[in-house]
């Protein structure tokens, strides 16, 4: 839908506002890497010179590596599991006429809206009642609940984006459900799967609240960072760690978002051509 010319006339005030908005949005975040190279244990202006000392300090710290490893150990299975479950759920939501469909979707999406804190304490209550010791497994379970709605939300448009008749055609040409999935569905939702893997891994990797309530002795990176906040002399190395986290997750997110949307766009134009 293209608007007529008089509606498209550039609006200078709005353009300036947009720039200011973006600056305000990114400025606080960019301060973190900025100060992580500042040669002072105080986070203040004026800057006092360039150093990589804080990064060097991190490198030598075993707990950083331990918690990094813990985060990866949680994030990888969580992203794979939640994407797998998301594929199954998104498929049945879009393909089968299930009774109570919208109620089910709302239920799956609940963790997107309800504060994670409540999920955290509720899970904590459950686990302590059951006598399950807190560990990285419990953290992963918590993350699974946080990640599932994101997986489903990323995959749903994918499944909606291609026509049901393609799967019917596969069945018509003699393939059963299993082969139809691998020969038709999977290749067509592949970008969504990649996006879901990347996004859920990042979410799990960055997640704080669930890990805060459900961690045992081993802690993930965000929890380590949180504990270091208490020590003012650690502030620069916390900044360095935070910079690394941002540096690490940004590309994953960018690729994830790009893939998920780019593919969709392509698909719709293709659909329009037929």
């Amino acid at each position: 839908m293209s608007a007529p010319t008089f509606l498209r006339r550039p609006n200078r005030v709005l353009s300036v506002y947009a720039i200011l908005f973006l600056v305000a949005l990114y400025f606080p975040i960019l301060l973190i890497p900025l100060f992580s190279f500042n040669d002072s244990i105080y986070v203040r202006f004026p800057l006092e010179g360039f150093t990589t000392e804080w990064f060097g300090q991190l490198w030598d710290r075993q707990p950083v590596w331990d918690s990094l490893w813990a985060s990866v150990k949680v994030g990888l299975p969580v992203s794979i599991l939640s994407t797998t479950l998301g594929v199954l759920a998104a498929r049945s939501i879009t393909r089968d006429r299930v009774p109570g469909r919208s109620a089910v979707v709302t239920f799956i999406m609940l963790p997107l809206v309800i504060p994670t804190l409540i999920f955290g304490v509720a899970l904590l209550a459950l686990l302590s009642r059951l006598g399950v010791p807190l560990s990285l497994y419990t953290v992963a379970f918590g993350h699974l609940i946080v990640c599932l709605p994101f997986s489903v939300a990323t995959l749903l448009p994918r499944f909606e984006g291609f026509d049901r008749s393609l799967e019917q055609a596969s069945a018509d040409l003699g393939e059963n459900g299993w082969w139809t999935f691998w020969r038709v569905t999977f290749p067509l939702v592949m970008p969504g799967i990649v996006a879901s893997l990347l996004l859920t891994f990042t979410i799990s990797f960055d997640e704080f609240i669930m890990a805060f309530f459900l961690s045992g002795n081993e802690t993930t990176l965000p929890i380590y960072l949180w504990t270091q906040l208490r020590f003012p002399q650690q502030f620069p190395s916390v900044l360095a760690l935070a910079s690394l986290l941002i540096l690490f997750s940004l590309p994953l997110i960018l690729i994830g978002m790009w893939i998920s949307r780019l593919g969709l766009h392509e698909n719709t134009t293709k659909g329009a051509k037929t």
Partner: peptide, 11 residues
């Protein structure tokens, strides 16, 4: 076998 209304050619 079926020829679909939208042809359903695998993209």
């Amino acid at each position: 076998n079926t020829v679909f209304q939208n042809y359903a050619i695998f993209p």
